[in-house]
Amino acid sequence: MPDKNSDKEKSRREFLKQSGWAVVGIAVAGTGLLFIDKNNKNGAGQLLLRPPGVINEEDFLYACIKCGLCIQICPIHAIKLADADMGLSIDTPYIDARQQACDFSCDSLQCAETCPTAALDFIKFKETGVETAIELQPKIDAGEIDGGDVFKIAIANMKKAVHIGFAIVNEKSCLAVQGKGFKGTPRGSEFKGVLRYRDISASKAQLVSEQIFDREVCDLCVIHCPIEGAIQLKEQSPANGNKKWIPEVTETCTGCGVCEMVCPTEHASIVIKPGLSYEEAKNV
């Protein structure tokens, strides 16, 4: 029988008591945070737009170690850290497409390449790149393509393989649907967002607010889209004679958000739904 009053016995009892409180604390923190997250509109379920290569949100929430390497490597600073109001997504990377979209002007999807935990998975892009190279090999041998261009084509294909969301058009507010044109700068002179306009400079990003457009029918989303053919204007001539155009998003949409960023209406008339696939979008 140990002496109840000895120092060792006392500290043993203290330890057990405090361990009990520790366990209670951990359990409360765990369940509490999960509860808050389940009831948070920004928590798991209601998704944030994640950077390219993102695995499914359920896995992403634990696989992302919140190091911020993707944020640092993005050349146009499209990726941001989520704050505490995003529940358990706190300090994970996301893209606020309306403010600064991912325009795929980077060299090689570095955000996914740099991710140490493959929460942004680069492997599938790598496979796409390799496949492209293999496919092009006969053409290079025949002299149809310069060997140096293969890398460029491979990168372009890798970017097409990105799928982080899908663009949904709001036909009520879209200017093209109303048959309206657009003159001026898309988001006003105060807007801070940048894009790389290839015909101006291949390397330097330009302020969107410095670009002036004059379109007979507003098709800013179409001309800005970095993926060829991901969005088209479909002309429709209803019986009453008022011509209208409907932007149609095709299967190749990657969800990068450039269209959402440049849309000139007060609230974007085209919005990226994170994680949405083409099939799901058709059923909506």
Partner: peptide
């Protein structure tokens, strides 16, 4: 404890 709660909830609760 934080390892176990991570295992149970599949979230990086501690972080």
């Amino acid at each position: 404890g934080f390892l176990i709660i991570a295992f149970i909830t599949e979230r990086l609760i501690f972080e």
